[in-house]
Design a protein around this nucleic acid. Structure first.
Lengths: 116, 116
DNA sequence: GGCATATTTCGAGTTTCCTTGAAGGGTGGA
DNA sequence: TCCACCCTTCAAGGAAACTCGAAATATGCC
């Protein structure tokens, strides 16, 4: 994970619609959700939803796969792991006294964080 | 932590200069850094730095205190804890098989995450 | 008081993002 | 082949963010 990727991920999540969509996908887990279901639950027109999902996709936070006529979106856990690791890297100079989000040892080698 | 606060925090971090500044403060720990030191290390003009630090401050990610003529900025660990907890809430429907960033039990009661 | 230091506020210009209707592409059923 | 469905792409307008020089504020030293 470099600063460009981190900013891309943060920018993708820095919008109410996209954050809501991402959280739906986090809750949905590996099975994901079809675009139509997300649009319905968020009350967004299809073109608006696509705009936001593309932002999440481009940032690597979600994945996309076609199943028949539907496009299924799902979270990419490794992306969030890498992002959290990057944000808390070298936290407090390595003294680890800032709470759960500040664990240098754990953050240095999270599962799937190969991009870090 | 609600979606408005989370979007505010993400927006604050969704900029290369602000993310770099935040990471400097994460590494600096509770002691923080004066604005001038941050500006120097980031190569930003003072007015630009203030613009970005205000964004981080308004989002609650950093705190501000005056020491003589200097303004010291420091990270607010609880803010990051709450943000991470919010992002991974109900992860994978509660099955916790997504890696370090997906721990429903830990995320439900992080240290200092009273705003969640 | 007078001056230097450290930081913020102001203002204007440029750039980027967000929204949404209309049109297009891919898929499946009859 | 024809149609219906699901989603994406395109295009244009409005809103918000970023940049930075100049001026202003706050503090400390002499």
């Amino acid at each position: 994970m470099d600063i460009v990727s981190a900013v891309a991920a943060m920018s993708a999540l820095a919008n109410e619609h996209r954050l809501a969509a991402y959280r739906l996908l986090v809750e949905a887990g590996p099975d994901g959700l079809p675009a139509g279901a997300i649009a319905e639950r968020l009350g967004l027109p299809p073109s608006s939803l696509t705009f936001h999902l593309q932002a999440l996709l481009h940032a690597g936070l979600v994945s996309q796969r076609r199943v028949s006529r539907q496009i299924i979106y799902a979270m990419v856990p490794a992306a969030m792991n890498a992002l959290v690791a990057y944000l808390t890297e070298h936290c407090c100079g390595g003294h680890a006294d800032c709470g759960p989000a500040c664990h240098p040892a754990a953050a240095s080698a999270p599962v799937g964080a190969s991009a870090a």
